[in-house]
Amino acid sequence: MIGLKPLFTALLATMFLATLPDLSWSTEQAQQRRAGRDVKQDTRQGARSTKQACRAANNKSNAACRQDKRQTKQSGRQTARDLKY
């Protein structure tokens, strides 16, 4: 029975050390997701500003202004994807 305790301790330590790279990967992945959310949130505000400026200029129809807003949001989504993956 005495010989099993050091073996169990070594096994437990090995299992703990094996999970350390996973913990750092999880942290990195969380930071990437957070950065992606920040980019998308900034993009939403930029898209609103784009549409408001388009409407204020009165050069385009409402549908064309909506399309500009969609394109702005789509480019923000792509930027967020590039950060995450």
Rank of each mutant, 00 (worst) to 15 (best):
M1L: 06
M1S: 12
G3K: 03
G3A: 05
L4R: 00
L4A: 04
L4G: 05
L4D: 00
P6R: 00
L7T: 07
L7K: 10
L7D: 07
L7G: 09
F8A: 04
T9K: 11
A10Q: 08
A10W: 01
A10P: 02
L11A: 14
L11D: 06
L11K: 13
L12V: 09
L12T: 03
A13F: 04
M15E: 02
F16G: 11
A18S: 06
L20C: 09
L20R: 05
L20V: 13
D22Y: 06
D22M: 09
L23V: 11
L23Q: 09
S26T: 08
S26F: 11
T27C: 07
T27H: 11
T27E: 11
T27Y: 12
E28A: 08
E28Q: 08
Q29E: 02
Q29P: 02
Q29I: 04
A30S: 13
Q31L: 12
Q31M: 13
Q31P: 09
Q31G: 13
Q31R: 13
Q32H: 01
R33I: 02
R33F: 08
R34D: 09
R34W: 13
R34S: 13
R34I: 12
R34E: 09
A35P: 00
A35T: 01
A35G: 03
G36L: 02
G36Y: 01
R37W: 14
K40I: 02
Q41K: 05
D42H: 10
D42S: 09
T43G: 14
Q45G: 07
Q45T: 10
Q45D: 10
Q45E: 07
G46M: 06
G46K: 04
A47N: 01
A47S: 04
S49R: 15
T50I: 10
K51M: 01
A53C: 01
A53R: 07
C54A: 09
C54N: 05
C54K: 02
R55P: 00
N58C: 06
N59A: 07
K60P: 08
S61V: 00
S61W: 00
S61M: 01
N62C: 01
A63Q: 05
C65M: 04
C65W: 01
C65G: 08
Q67N: 12
D68V: 03
R70I: 09
Q71P: 13
T72E: 12
K73S: 14
K73G: 06
K73N: 07
Q74V: 14
Q74P: 15
Q74N: 15
Q74K: 15
S75Y: 07
S75K: 15
S75G: 04
S75E: 15
G76D: 11
R77C: 15
R77F: 14
R77H: 14
Q78E: 10
Q78C: 05
A80M: 01
A80I: 03
R81P: 12
D82K: 14
D82N: 15
K84V: 10
Y85M: 02
Y85G: 08
